[in-house]
Amino acid sequence: MNKEWPLWEVFIRSKAGLHHQHVGSLHAADSEMALENARDVYTRRQEGVSIWVVQSNSIIASNPEENTSFFDPAEDKIYRHPTFYELPDELKHM
């Protein structure tokens, strides 16, 4: 038998109140081992309070070669930013 252990992506919440963030990947035979390996590899110095592991092949990613058309809808909508709207000079904060 010559099967490689599947690849998992690891996400860690560094402390309560923050998002889980992608930190890297690892190989593991199953989800339980993936969690334990993630703990041993990515939180040896208490870098996290919560870990997610996801099999890498379950992630659907956008294609960078189609970036121009894919992200096109947001390109010309400067009115979505507060700086688009002018305020009178006497108004200091809004």
């Binding site: 490689e4 690849l7 990947s25 690892l26 190989h27 590899v41 040896r44």
Partner: peptide, 23 residues
């Protein structure tokens, strides 16, 4: 020494993003 095992793993993972496999 444990750190070094981890460092090897981070690097293998980085290489795998380029299409090679751990094996």
């Amino acid at each position: 020494v444990q750190d070094e095992a981890g460092h090897g793993l981070y690097l293998y993972s980085a290489a795998e993003t380029l299409g090679t496999t751990r094996g």
